[in-house]
Structures are given as structure tokens and as C-alpha cells.
Design a protein around this nucleic acid. Structure first.
Length: 894
RNA sequence: GCGCGCUUAGCUCAGUGGUAGAGCACAUCCUUCACACGGAUGGGGUCGCAGGUUCGAACCCUGCAGCGCGCACCA
């Protein structure tokens, strides 16, 4: 028997087993296996990333699914990797460069800068991988991928080339979301609308041919006034429509601009007149196009003013310029009013500054396979859990806009397009570039650079998600089209991810899967909860409300963290995280460990289970409960209700196994117990515990592996993680009737013990073990269970005596197995007992009344299902019996 | 404006038609030889509000309120 410390210490154990699993190759997927395939691809964390609780939840679920699939005898591939995360990574390296050397990326030049980013990736990129290992993730690390691996990059380029040739990718001058900090275009998804307290300024422009007459205009952005090229009014505007076609004076720089009519203008809003700045507003841009208006860009890419004609504004920050413009308008007497105004302003997701609508030359993708992809989710070929996300998905798919895929960054996959040097200027300013331009030989689009001629490559890189959307198959197919991995494991089974990237990633992967592999990439998508703090706020670094999972693992163990988090994560709702749940996870591991420690007092050699027929009812009951647990879990796994699984596992061990069975069985492990009783107890323990450890393993892999070894449940060199879960119930040989009979008896004993303890507590002898109980009218079978009952109730002796005449005032209780008395010197108190019993009778009478009322209601008896009525009758009968017994007791006191 | 979700014990949450639950917190007792990261006992809820359906509603329907999220608009 190995000495076990009193409390479970996970740190060393977890490290040891993770190393052992890796050493033994337990995580490796065999692409030539005959077994049924099960695959998950990890949502690749950013290389710059550090593990947070969202990762913990997400990867715990994936690990549970992977480990569960292995237990079902499947060949499992959990494919890990990281994402190059263009903007985030580049920004991080640029910041370090600025802080340590005071340089910008342009100081270094593209090649040198990229070298720095690679250095960063090579030194920091595996931090999060190490952290995932610490958590116990059973990924096949031999297949770890990075979105900028050479083979992966080739895939990305190939996809670009194919889609370009198909006419789905084109370059064009468009209004895009521009981040003035990151200095790049962003996709619509990377813009976050934030409600903001703004000011709505109302100003007036004077009509050129009727001095003294003004048109009033409201705006939130007076600083773009220099870019105004028109004033638009609704054609039905009561006051202004008659002025359509007239010119007004733009105050600075002074110019005459026309009043135009357009029904895009909202009559109700502001004054009903709208200043048109095509360069800096999406709606204005479209109106400008329609009316053939000039585009005047008054901002630099970094968001500072670009107004050489107005030196007082030139180079000014856009928000400073706003105040300056207002001041100037006021000075000129053109400002009419300022009001507080709530509107939504688009912010750059990464840089967290207001984005600037800006016209620029960008590459766009017309999404492929929209119809099929929409249909796949609608008809259930792909299941979303919770299902309501399917609606969100459908809505987005219906309103798809072309995807801006080019980014003005250096870190990423460079656009595989080359321009003929002699036509460079024309090409760079061309309104659009498409397939025909490649056919004409002006541009070259290919995976490999052109071999002859003088070309210059497009400087832009692609949106990170343009590589991520290929993740499910690009990670599997890097040994060519005939990759066995791809054949064996694609499409994958489950995708586990956050609902916040349903558009960024999930929807796009579905389209890519159909387009490039002609198959959906996964069958189920499980959207995890978003983790918030106790105040309901999102976890974030800036709020400092995000606990470090590594600290939590140091404190409570990886298993404790996993279990604690899983147990509180609801399906489809946010989870409010509190450290106490992780503490509970740790406590649970400790409880499990100590249950096994108790067993080891009787040695740690596996004890075979004797024939189940004729075993004590407690043993049969606990095995029946385990069988039911296993069967139930099967169904709950099918519904992906992970929190409920954890809860069921928790309740079985703590309540059924430890609190009840383990206490009852102590009677059979005493020195005085027979060898037969001991063997039955130990055999039951091992049968139940070995199976239970398997059931728990996906949630708490380390402690279950440790205990399986220590308890002799696996043979040398074998791992519980690789062991197939048997599907035969422990009690396969017993009939349901036999099981039910045992269950009833065991339950009666446990309930009776509870009543006796309750009685002791009420008389303040809860902790005394020297008490004696006497039963009157006890069931015949009780005599065989007296020892166990005494043990559970904490009594020195329990007697049955139908002729017993209790002294008046003796504490007494009605139990499922008869009337119980607690005769003890000093406890006898007639008045107290009268009050206590009367209270109980009162409670009981209410119940009886309720039941009688129900059964007296003809509609209930006629219309409710017969079993419900039967149940109600049974209940009433029980209560009446009890009431009668209590009545007798009360009478005896009088 | 459209859509989705939530509202159950002090806190965090289970519970989808048939006697209101768990964990934590709280109170009392117990350091009894698996576990104080523990055991025992107990207090605590008109299940957001108002209607409706039903023999019966926390659960189904309608409306309302509060909170949260997404989308669109936002001069």
C-alpha cells in the first residue's frame, strides 16, 4: 500500500501524467487506422496570445470531446495550431520596436521588420501552446500548424489565385473602414459600433444668389466641411426643395456648391438638409457617385487634417479640428446651435479608435457558395448549438457584402499579384482590376512569382481571416492533394468556438469548405459561453478583472480549474465566473482522492466483484446508480450539455457514493466483519470506482489517471485515457425488479438514518455516539440492516421491540421502517415532545389536505394521467399512515 | 427600428406541465481512525408583473417592465 498524502496535490501529478501520455503517443492520430474517425480542429489562438478563461473553457470542451471519443474506440485527431493574427502581432512588435529602439517599421524596412516579427513568433509563439499543455489538452502536437507555415501559405495563395481567376476576387476603389492608428483597411466585421455621446451641430450656408437667405444643416462632423461638395435635401422638403439647383457658399475654404435633391435624405432628421462629403462618409459617397460629384479628401491616413489650402487646419488632429471648425463657424456667425446627441460610432476592433470611412484601392472577395452554405445550416446538415445562432447566421448570410481582404500591413500573406513595372502608374490608379487584366498580361496572379519580365509585387497582405477560413482542411492537406490525413479526418465532427466569431470565422469556413473541398467542414458547431465577472462585465485586461488561468492552476490544479469551470458553464448563456467554483473543483478532486485513500486502507490490489446476486442492498443500489449515470451521460453528451454532465458526475461521487454508500459500507470493513462481507465491499468499491474514474476522465484527466494507476485499475503501461469505456452495465445480470427492491430498501435505511440524526440534532445530542434507538413496529427485514443503520445514525445500539412502552416525553419519530424512540436520561420532556409532534402533525395535515383536495376534484381524477393519480393516492396513503402514527404518539403523551 | 436572450433562495445557477432544487454564503453542533479542500442538522423562495390556456403553470400562450446582446440607421 502506497502512502498517500492527506490532501491531493495536483501539481506534480498533472505534470507527470501529461509527460507520460505524450511519451506513449496517446495523443497521436493514426491516419491509416481502421477505427472510425473523430476530428476537431482547434480554433487557433493568436501567436501573441496568452491563455485566458475563454480559452480554458473552449479547450476544456474540446478535450472532453476528444477524450470521450477515444473512450468510444474512435481514432481521434485533435489538430492544434496558432494563428499569425496580422494586425495584433504586427502592432505588438511595432510597439516593442518603438519602446526599445524608438524606431518604426519603416525605419527598418519590410524585410528586416518581418525578420523581427518572425523572431518574436519563434520566441513567444509557443507560450499559449505550453499553457494548453498545462491544462491537459490532448492535441496531436506532431501535427501542430501555423497559418504562415510554408505549405499553409501556399494554400492561401492558391485560393486567392483560384478565386481571382473565377472572377470572385477583384480590386477596386471603394469606401472602406480605415483605421487611422493601424493605417490599414478593415472588414466590416472588424468595426465595432459603440454608442457615443456626441454633439449635433447646426450651421447655415448662405445662398449665393439670395444673400441673407440660408439653408440650415445639421452635422456631427463639422471638421469635414472642407470636403463638402454639395448640400442635399429631400425632393419633398417643404422649405428647401424649391432651392434644388441653387448654389450655396461653403464658408471655408470658400467655394460655391450646389443644392441637390435626393430621397436618401431623411426629412425628419435635423433640418432635413445634409452636407455631402463623399470622401468621408459612406452615404455621401454613394450620393456623390449618383450625382457625379467631386471627391475631396481632407484627411491624411493617420486621421490628421490634410488641408494645404487652409494652413490653420492643416495637420491638425481630426478631433481638435472639430472644435476648431466649430469655433470658426461661430466666429463667422454661421453656427446656429449645438445639442447633445447619442449616436453609434464605429471603432477599430484592435486599436479602439473611431474608424474613418475612406476611399481607397483594396482587394475584395465576392463570397462563394453562399446558397449551399446558407442551406446547410438551415436544413441541419450543420447543427448549431445553441440552435438560435442559426438565425443570426442566416441573417448575416442574407446580407453579405463583398469582403475587403487586403490590409496595408507587412505581417501576413502578401497578395500574390504582380504589376508590370512599365504600367505601374496606370495599374495603381486603375478604377478596378479583374480577371481580364491578368488575361491581358498587365498583371500576373500566381502562387509562384513570375519567372520573366520586370514586375513589382502588390505590397498589401491579406486579412488574417482569409487564411483562417481554410483552417479545417489546409491544416490536414499539406502533403498534397492525396493527403491521407485529409481523407481520414475531413470533414471534422465538432467545432467549438465563441459566438463572437460566427461571421469572422464559422460562416467563412463553411463557404470555404464547400468551395474547396466540396464538403462542409464540420457537422456540429458548439458555441461556448462568454465568460464575465460577477458584475457581468466581459473579462478584459484593461479592467483587470480577468484572472490568470495559470495562477488558478497553481492554486487549484488543472483538473480543478477544468471541472469547476465546466460545472458552472450553462448552455447558451454567459457564465459569471468566480474563483470559488474553481475551488470547488479542487475540493472535488480531493474528495475523490480521499475516497480512494479510504479504500487503500484495505490494500490496493484490485478486488474482483463477487456475483452480484445476493449482495447487500447498498452495493446493488450504488451500482445501479452508476449504471444509470453512465446511461444518462450518453444522452447528455449527445446534447452537448457539458455543465450538466459535470454536475451529475459531482452528485454521484459526493452524494451517492461518499455520503451514503461509503458510510454504509464501513460496517463491512470493520475488523469484526466477515471475510465475505469485506470482499463484497471491496469488490463493489473497485467495480464502481474503476468505472467511475473512466466516466470522469474526460473532465479530470490527471487525477483519474493517477488514481487508476494507484488503485490497480489499469495494468502496467496501460492508460485510462486510452481505455475503451465498457458499455455493459455492472448489474447486467440483475432484473429490474431485483434492482428496484434493493434500491427501495437502501433508500429506506438512508432515510431512516436521516430521521434519527435529525432527532438527535433536535435534542442537541447530534454528535453523541452513545445513544440508543428503539423501534416499534419495525419491518421484518430491518434486523438484517441494524448494524448499518446504527453506523449511519451514529448510535451505539438499535433495538426492535414491539412491546416497548416509551416513558412519556421520550423523543420519537416516524420513519420509513417504523416508529423510532430515543430514550435517554435527561431528554424526556413531555411538553417539548408535544410541541414538536404537534408541529409535525400540522405540516402533515396540510399535505394531506392538499392531496385530498386534489383527489376530490373530479376533473383531476378524470383527466389527469392515471399514473399521476395513482401516485397522488399513494402519497396520500403514506401521509395518512404517518399522521396516524404521529397521532398515537401525541395521545400517548396525554 | 428589427431580432435574440435573460429575470427562480443573499450570490452563482439547475429545473420545460404533476409535492420548488444544487453549490457557495449563513446558523448550530462535531477536530469520530478517507477527506475541515471534511461531516451532521437547520433557516431562507407568493419562481419579474398582469392576463390567458389547462383538472393542474416556475414551465405553454399574450401583453408589460427591467437587464443584456446582435443587426440596421444615425447628417
Amino acid at each position: 500500500m502506497s502512502e498517500l498524502a492527506k490532501a491531493y496535490e495536483p501539481q506534480e501529478v498533472e505534470k507527470k501524467w501529461y509527460a507520460a501520455w505524450q511519451e506513449a503517443g496517446c495523443f497521436r492520430a493514426d491516419e491509416s487506422s481502421e477505427k472510425e474517425a473523430y476530428a476537431i480542429v482547434i480554433p487557433p489562438p493568436n501567436v501573441t496570445g496568452i491563455l485566458h478563461l475563454g480559452h480554458v473553457l473552449n479547450n476544456s470542451i474540446q478535450d472532453i470531446l476528444a477524450r470521450r471519443a477515444r473512450q468510444q474506440g474512435k481514432e481521434v485527431l485533435w489538430l492544434p495550431g496558432t494563428d499569425h493574427a496580422g494586425i495584433a502581432t504586427q502592432a505588438k512588435v511595432e510597439r516593442e520596436l518603438r519602446e526599445s529602439e524608438g524606431k518604426t517599421r519603416r525605419d527598418l524596412g519590410r524585410d528586416e521588420f518581418l525578420k523581427r516579427v518572425w523572431d518574436f513568433k519563434n520566441t513567444h509563439g509557443d507560450i499559449i501552446i505550453k499553457q494548453l499543455k498545462r491544462l491537459g489538452c490532448s492535441c496531436d502536437w506532431s501535427r501542430e500548424r501555423f497559418t504562415m507555415d510554408p505549405e499553409y501559405t501556399k494554400w492561401v495563395s492558391q485560393v486567392f489565385v483560384d478565386l481571382f481567376n473565377e472572377g470572385l476576387i477583384y480590386r477596386g476603389k471603394r469606401m472602406v473602414n480605415w483605421c487611422p492608428v493601424s493605417l490599414t483597411a478593415l472588414s466590416d466585421e472588424e468595426v465595432i459600433m459603440k454608442p457615443s455621446k456626441s454633439k449635433l451641430f447646426t450651421m447655415k450656408y448662405e445662398l449665393s444668389d439670395s444673400p441673407g437667405e440660408f439653408i440650415e444643416i445639421s452635422t456631427t462632423r463639422p471638421e469635414t466641411l472642407m470636403g463638402d461638395v454639395a448640400v442635399a435635401v429631400h425632393p419633398k422638403h417643404p422649405k428647401y426643395s424649391k432651392w434644388i439647383g441653387k448654389m450655396v457658399k461653403r464658408p471655408f475654404p470658400e467655394a460655391l456648391i450646389p443644392i441637390i435633391g435626393d430621397d436618401a435624405v431623411d426629412l425628419e432628421f435635423g433640418t432635413g438638409a445634409l452636407k455631402i462629403t463623399p470622401a468621408h462618409d459612406k452615404v455621401d459617397f454613394e450620393i456623390g457617385l449618383k450625382h457625379g460629384l467631386e471627391i475631396i479628401d481632407v484627411l491624411h491616413p493617420d486621421g490628421n487634417m490634410n488641408t494645404p489650402d487652409l494652413p490653420e487646419f492643416d495637420g491638425m488632429d481630426r478631433f481638435v479640428a472639430r472644435r476648431a471648425a466649430v469655433a470658426k463657424l461661430e466666429e463667422m456667425g454661421l453656427l446656429i446651435g449645438v445639442e447633445e446627441y447619442e449616436n453609434s460610432v464605429g471603432y477599430s476592433e484592435r486599436a479602439d479608435v473611431p474608424i474613418e470611412p475612406r476611399i481607397s484601392m483594396q482587394w475584395f472577395l465576392r463570397y462563394p457558395e453562399i446558397g449551399k452554405s446558407t442551406e446547410a445550416v438551415a436544413n441541419g446538415d450543420i447543427t448549431f448549438r445553441p440552435a438560435r445562432w442559426a438565425k443570426t447566421y442566416a441573417h448575416w448570410m442574407e446580407n453579405l457584402q463583398d469582403w475587403c481582404i487586403s490590409r496595408q500591413l507587412w505581417w501576413g500573406h502578401q497578395i500574390p499579384v504582380w504589376y508590370r513595372k512599365d504600367k505601374l502608374n496606370d495599374l495603381k490608379n486603375a478604377e478596378s482590376l479583374e480577371t481580364k487584366d491578368a488575361e491581358a498580361g498587365d498583371i500576373y496572379v500566381g502562387v509562384e512569382p513570375p519567372t520573366e519580365g520586370d514586375w513589382e509585387r502588390d505590397e498589401d497582405v491579406m486579412d488574417t481571416w482569409f487564411s483562417s477560413w481554410l483552417w479545417p482542411f489546409a491544416t490536414m492537406s499539406d502533403v498534397g492533394e492525396n493527403s491521407q490525413t485529409l481523407k481520414k479526418f475531413y470533414p471534422t465532427a465538432d467545432l467549438v468556438t465563441g459566438p463572437d466569431i460566427i461571421f469572422f470565422w464559422v460562416a467563412r469556413m463553411i463557404m470555404a469548405g464547400y468551395r474547396f473541398e466540396d464538403q462542409l467542414p464540420f457537422k456540429n458547431v458548439y458555441f461556448t459561453s462568454i465568460i464575465r465577472d460577477l458584475k457581468g462585465r466581459k473579462m478584459s485586461k484593461s479592467l483587470g478583472n480577468s484572472p490568470d488561468p495559470i495562477d488558478l492552476m497553481d492554486k487549484f490544479g488543472a483538473d480543478g480549474l477544468r471541472f469547476g469551470l465546466m460545472r458552472i458553464a450553462p448552455v447558451g448563456a454567459d457564465v459569471r465566473f468566480d474563483e470559488s467554483s474553481v475551488e470547488e473543483g479542487r475540493n472535488f478532486a480531493n474528495k475523490l482522492y480521499n475516497a480512494c485513500r479510504f479504500r487503500q486502507m484495505d490494500g490496493n490490489e484490485f478486488a474482483p466483484l463477487p456475483a452480484v446476486k445476493g449482495l447487500p442492498v447498498y452495493h446493488i443500489q450504488v451500482m445501479a446508480k452508476l449504471d444509470k449515470l453512465q446511461a444518462d451521460l450518453e444522452g447528455i453528451y449527445g446534447e452537448y450539455r457539458f455543465g450538466e454532465i459535470a454536475q451529475r458526475l459531482y452528485e454521484f461521487l459526493w452524494n451517492d457514493f461518499c455520503d451514503k454508500w461509503l458510510e454504509a459500507v464501513k460496517a463491512d470493513l470493520r475488523e469484526s466483519a466477515t471475510a465475505e462481507a469485506r470482499a463484497a465491499a471491496l469488490g463493489t468499491f473497485d467495480a464502481v470506482m474503476s468505472r467511475y474514474l473512466q466516466l470522469l476522465h474526460p473532465y479530470m484527466p490527471h487525477v483519474t489517471e493517477e488514481l487508476s494507476e494507484r488503485m490497480d485499475y489499469v495494468s502496467k503501461g496501460e492508460f485510462v485515457m486510452s481505455k475503451v469505456l465498457p458499455d455493459t452495465p455492472l448489474l447486467a445480470e440483475l432484473s429490474p425488479g431485483e434492482i428496484e427492491a434493493a434500491d427501495k430498501q437502501a433508500t429506506a435505511i438512508y432515510e431512516t438514518a436521516g430521521r434519527l440524526r435529525n432527532l438527535k440534532a433536535e435534542y442537541n445530542v447530534g454528535s453523541r455516539k452513545d445513544v440508543r434507538f428503539i423501534f416499534k413496529g419495525a419491518a421484518a427485514w430491518l434486523s438484517g440492516e441494524i448494524n448499518v443503520l446504527a453506523l449511519l445514525a451514529g448510535a451505539a445500539e438499535i433495538l426492535t421491540d414491539d412491546a416497548y412502552e416509551a416513558p412519556k416525553g421520550t423523543p420519537a419519530a416516524v420513519t420509513p421502517v417504523g416508529e423510532a424512540y430515543l430514550p435517554m436520561e435527561g431528554l424526556i420532556d413531555v411538553e417539548a415532545e408535544k410541541i414538536r409532534i404537534s408541529k409535525e402533525i400540522e405540516k402533515m395535515q396540510i399535505e394531506v389536505k392538499k392531496a385530498e383536495g386534489k383527489l376530490g376534484n373530479a376533473s383531476f381524477v378524470d383527466r389527469a394521467p392515471p399514473e399521476v393519480v395513482e401516485q397522488e393516492k399513494q402519497r396520500l396513503e403514506d401521509w395518512k399512515t404517518k399522521l396516524a402514527q404521529l397521532g398515537e404518539m401525541l395521545d400517548a403523551l396525554k
